[in-house]
Write a protein that binds this DNA or RNA. Sequence first.
DNA 1: AATGAATGAGATTTCATTCAT
DNA 2: AATGAATGAAATCTCATTCAT
Lengths: 230, 230, 230, 230
Amino acid sequence: MRKPGSNGAETQRNLRAAAIQLLSEHGYGAMNLRMLAKKVGIQASSLYNYIESKQQLLYLLCEETTGALALELDQTLKGVKEPAERLRKFVAFHLGYHIVNRKQASVLQMEIRSLTAKNFQAITKLQRLYTDKVHRIVDDGVAQGSFRVADSEIVTFALVQMLTAVTRWYRPQGRLALDQLVEIYTDLSLGMLHADSAARTARALPSPATRRPRRSEPLLAAESAESADG
Amino acid sequence: MRKPGSNGAETQRNLRAAAIQLLSEHGYGAMNLRMLAKKVGIQASSLYNYIESKQQLLYLLCEETTGALALELDQTLKGVKEPAERLRKFVAFHLGYHIVNRKQASVLQMEIRSLTAKNFQAITKLQRLYTDKVHRIVDDGVAQGSFRVADSEIVTFALVQMLTAVTRWYRPQGRLALDQLVEIYTDLSLGMLHADSAARTARALPSPATRRPRRSEPLLAAESAESADG
Amino acid sequence: MRKPGSNGAETQRNLRAAAIQLLSEHGYGAMNLRMLAKKVGIQASSLYNYIESKQQLLYLLCEETTGALALELDQTLKGVKEPAERLRKFVAFHLGYHIVNRKQASVLQMEIRSLTAKNFQAITKLQRLYTDKVHRIVDDGVAQGSFRVADSEIVTFALVQMLTAVTRWYRPQGRLALDQLVEIYTDLSLGMLHADSAARTARALPSPATRRPRRSEPLLAAESAESADG
Amino acid sequence: MRKPGSNGAETQRNLRAAAIQLLSEHGYGAMNLRMLAKKVGIQASSLYNYIESKQQLLYLLCEETTGALALELDQTLKGVKEPAERLRKFVAFHLGYHIVNRKQASVLQMEIRSLTAKNFQAITKLQRLYTDKVHRIVDDGVAQGSFRVADSEIVTFALVQMLTAVTRWYRPQGRLALDQLVEIYTDLSLGMLHADSAARTARALPSPATRRPRRSEPLLAAESAESADG
DNA sequence: AATGAATGAGATTTCATTCAT
DNA sequence: AATGAATGAAATCTCATTCAT
């Protein structure tokens, strides 16, 4: 049967969006295909015109996100030479991506574990490529003398994870705007790297006095409450 | 019927250990009670002499971990006055706990989402109490002038999450020993807080030359490979 | 829409051939219409321009085969009077048909059971007409004294089934050519009927020495391996 | 839950019997586990306390039948030396087994094709062992001069298949009793092998006059009608 | 004549849980 | 305290079939 006005490409897009939303909200195990189908507005069996399996759907979403991250990071860093400046760009990009695409990103972060062993390995391999890029920035900065770290591998992990964790609490209605968060996290990152004053001065830390908290809105959101804004 | 040599209290302990192991390895959704029963050495139906339900089991484990964290943090900080010293103690404690009890801790971190709404809220509330303690340390340090931060709430989240994330990659066979990790992470934390030099001097940053990699083994472990050491 | 170069009649023929191939390979239950459509080179939904339903397709193929068998047997026996000679002709025809059209024949043999009750009865009725023709040859030969049997009905069944079963093992690349097989099976058939020496002499049993195995290939083929020659 | 009076071993036996009945009646593809469960008197999900999967169930039944055939044939032939006598014993055994256990036997014959490739190969290998035993009897008889055949491999297939095909038409209420059938088929078999008169005399062919047909009952049964006696 | 999109019924299988023993 | 037997709800996935285009 064909619903009048139905359109494959649109359904495909809706499916993707619905899947991200539901996966980030419930997790892979707790999301079932009926929920997904309902959100897309078709029957569960019709999903199989668009996906191979539930597992494959998860895999593709994870792959897509990882791939996008790597690609966009490269573009962001293109032409930027100074390690300190590259780090800044990285922080701004990584944080921004994880805030703007926070559902997608949280699927990648949380649901990897639901991938089959083979798929899991494929994704972690891709992720490793991304982390290595950051690692190189850190190492370059250390070699050049802009940064000082006890262990560049550990610091890289810690840095990436600290930034990534923003998906765990960020809420669009929160107290702080994206650019404010970027400034704050840049400062944290440079602090972790013991960046020299030259590295720090590219952009000044905003004076605390100028920020005006809107206190009524909580900053930290219970994860399950996230669904409210989906 | 009662198996000869069986002992309720011991089975209870075995069950708890087995549950932590399996939950951290497979996740709540993918762990089934037959697996658990097998590991304990009883039949699935016999589990119900010890637990009320699968959900309740998860809840109790989460509650226990959260409670233990809060309790032990208080003990750790008892009598320590200086914010900088309190922070140091916190870092050492939090990191140590998450490494030593990394499976338990990762259950708390990863499987919360599988709690029912009510249980979820109860746990996040408890977690909030813990985070607040850290928040207070940061605020105290700032008030006193030892620390300088752009936004103490954000910094607290970032700090806790950075430390907690150690469960994601730590492997007992890895390159670094616990005390080395504590030093590194303390340094990172103080960096994030722009701690003044007095705050930093309690313990010196180890010179890189003194650290001796113990093995050529990788530091970062694929999460799913963790099962190997269980 | 109409694909350029498409032609209804040709598609019809392709469909029939593809269906026979797939049914003999997988069986009715395991063959699905998507497989069939793919082999024909159209979409599954387009099949319905040629068939009423999957069941009807099977029915028509079975009917066609049964009808062809009956028709061709009549033509084969036309003008042949002697029971012994009629039997010979029958054996040669039945065996030849089941070897040359072995896939079709095996569909008839194996997939009848997948017909609906009504269709099943229709086909078995037709088959019965065919068997009856053979039964009559046997009875005539007995009446005339050329054959001697304990129970002509049983013998007829046994004979037909023995010959039909050739579809279960025959492989085109096997050791024996069709005419050799005909000789062998004619000898077996006459043996079953205790044919008198006059009946046997129409064509002599080939002396074993003259048969030359063509290959070292096995005679017996696993059924599922048949697909290799389709 | 436990139904009062429920008993595992008994359910196991019932399941096996029900499976044979339903598989022979409907075929593997058309039999579904709900039907099976209903016949056993439990819920479909409870079947999984006894079977691993539908496929495994089929495999085990096939294996069991094939194994039983081989074992019992060996016992039947134990101590029998003369090829002619061995052949007689084989015919009586094979026919008898396929009549008495005709449902089981027809499952083996018809449903093999529904086995997965691996399982299929395992069973055909076992079947081959059985056929080889028969082949050896034929070859021995030829070597000794009791039999005369054009091609012992073909004759063996033809013989075994002719006997096996009895499952296709036999009905317990039919015209002929088992021992009569054995006599008839022994005669057919010896005819196929051109057995010498010594070989034929071990037991005389019954004179047709002594058999009294009960004509009201058809000999040939439509397969699907078989269910009537299950 | 052909297709893209969708359906709905049904299949196998999994699993937490129950209860008589 | 422990188990064997069973349940029932749900999940993923398959497939013949339909109908607007």
